[in-house]
Amino acid sequence: MARYILRRSGYMLVTMIFVAVIGFLIIELPPGSYLEFEIARLRQLGGDMAPEQIRALEVRYGVHDPIYLKFWKWFSGFVRGDFGRSFEHRLPVSELLWQRLGFTVLISVLTMIFSWVVSIIVGVYSATHRYTIPDYAITVLQFIGLSVPNFLLALVLMVFAQQVLGMEVGGLFSGAYRNAPWSLAKFIDLLKHLWIPILVIGASGTAWLSRVMRGNLLDVLNMQYVQTARAKGLSERTVIWKHAVRNALHPLVMVLGMSLPGIISGETVVAIVLNMPTTGPLYFRALLQQDMYLAVTFLMFLAVLLLIGNLFADILLAWLDPRIRFE
């Protein structure tokens, strides 16, 4: 098991290096980068400081260096925690990163737990009640969940919460707590705000996962060993929960890795509408402003999050499935 984890982690490191290459390419790709813009601005400003500042920038980002050196400068800095500068915010990227990333992780993890619990229950229910009216109703909901763009769902829910429930919507905190230090009251306030993002981000993933769960379970229910379990005289409940569901979970864990990108990219988009202090709004704004060091740092961290999520999924799978465990 330990060796398996070690080997998987090795793979992950290699993938990360390639992720970095792609990230670097994305920084280099745009025609007019913010860096050039900044240099031009400094040059126009003139003054005594300007030429030195320009030189410092050129050295730091390797403007005149060959491409591989430029990559190395950026990559080695990245590994050491120097992610470059956000030219728009006039701050090192690292100062903008951590808190927002923290909220992104929090919301993604909560969303995932939510969508797993709901998917399994709904999937089992609809697979065992096939061709009944609730199953059809669930199917309709699943189709809708998969068809509504998440930002639209966010808008609709916000309008609903504001107009019908009379809630203050948007953000993760009420005005009073936004800049307050952490306290129990602030935490409770956070929980009150979390349901909309979790519901919205989780909707399509849950719709999809519960469909996968239903399909898996239907497949497993066709397996011979389920007949064997029934032939023993076990009750249908035991047959389903002990013998079928356990095996239907394997493919679900395998697609866990696939459901993560959806959650993370959903989170980034929805955050704009919900006005949340997470990576999304800053990331897309940075892209629009061509503030590439900021944008790519976010993108890289999102990818790393995904890789870690996939690693967890694989370990979970190995733990769940004896056939993998003993390989």
Binding site: M223, Q224, Q227, T228, A229, A231, G233, P322
Partner: peptide, 18 residues
């Protein structure tokens, strides 16, 4: 299971892998 028992054709798939 108690009075009527059954075994199937495919020994590979008739036991629960988990």
């Amino acid at each position: 299971g108690a009075e009527l028992a059954m075994i199937f054709q495919e020994p590979m798939t008739s036991l629960n892998p988990s």
